[in-house]
Simulated assay, not measured.
Amino acid sequence: MSAIPEIDLADPAVLSDPFTVYGRAREQSPVARLLKPGLGAMWALTRYEDAKAMLTDVRFEMNANSYVRPDVPELQQQENIQQMDGPKHARLRRLLSTPFTARRAAEFRPALQRTVESLLDGLAGHADGEPVDLLGQFSRPFAVHVACELVGIVPEDYDTWRTHAAAVAVGHGPEFMQAVPGIARAATEAVARSRRERALGLLAELLGTDAEDQDQLTDTELITVVWHLVLAGQGPAYLIANSVEVLLQHPVQLAELRADESLMPGAVEELTRMHGPQVLTLPRYAREDVEIAGMTIPRGDRICAVLASANRDPRVFEDPDRLDFRRVPGRPAHLGYVHGSHFCLGAALARVQTGVALSMLLRRFPKLALAGGDVLRIPNSEFWRPTALLVTL
Rank of each mutant, 00 (worst) to 15 (best):
I183T: 11
V268I: 11
E288Q: 10
Q253C: 01
V252I: 07
V225C: 10
I292Y: 01
H228V: 07
T272F: 12
F176T: 13
V290E: 12
G208Y: 02
A286G: 11
Q216V: 02
E270C: 12
A204C: 08
G294E: 05
W227D: 06
L203W: 11
Y285A: 09
G276H: 11
A232K: 08
Q216W: 02
L248I: 04
A190C: 07
T296G: 03
E245Y: 11
L207V: 09
V225Y: 00
G235C: 04
Q234K: 10
W227C: 02
R196G: 07
A167W: 05
S243F: 04
A204R: 11
P181D: 06
V180H: 08
R287C: 03
T188E: 14
V290T: 08
P236G: 13
T281C: 02
I223C: 09
D210T: 00
P277H: 07
L222E: 02
P265I: 11
R195Q: 15
E261S: 13
A186E: 08
M177R: 15
P277C: 05
E197D: 15
G171Q: 12
G266E: 03
F176Q: 10
V252R: 08
P265V: 08
A186N: 05
E269P: 14
T272K: 05
L239F: 00
V268L: 08
D289Y: 06
G171R: 06
E291D: 12
T224H: 03
S194F: 14
I183N: 01
T281N: 06
P298I: 10
L254M: 04
L200M: 03
D301K: 12
E175Q: 15
R193F: 13
T224F: 00
V290A: 09
A179Q: 07
Q214H: 09
T218G: 14
V230C: 03
R193A: 12
M274L: 15
H275W: 12
A187H: 05
R273G: 06
R193L: 15
D219M: 07
A211W: 00
A241R: 02
R195K: 15
I292T: 07
R198S: 15
N242W: 00
L229C: 00
T272G: 10
S262Y: 02
T209E: 11
W227K: 05
Q178Y: 03
P174E: 14
R185D: 13
E221V: 14
E245P: 00
T218I: 01
Q278D: 13
V230E: 06
M274Q: 13
D210I: 05
A167C: 12
Q253S: 09
P174N: 09
T296W: 04
L217I: 09
I297M: 01
M264C: 04
R299C: 10
L202D: 08
T296C: 09
R287V: 15
P298W: 06
A169L: 15
T224G: 04
E269L: 09
R198L: 08
A192R: 10
A293M: 02
G171E: 11
R299K: 15
R196I: 03
L207M: 07
D289F: 03
V191F: 03
G294S: 06
I292G: 01
L202A: 10
A259F: 00
S243A: 12
V290R: 04
Y285F: 14
T281Y: 00
Q178N: 15
G266N: 00
D219N: 14
D210Q: 04
V279H: 14
D219I: 07
D260L: 05
M295V: 10
R195C: 14
R287P: 01
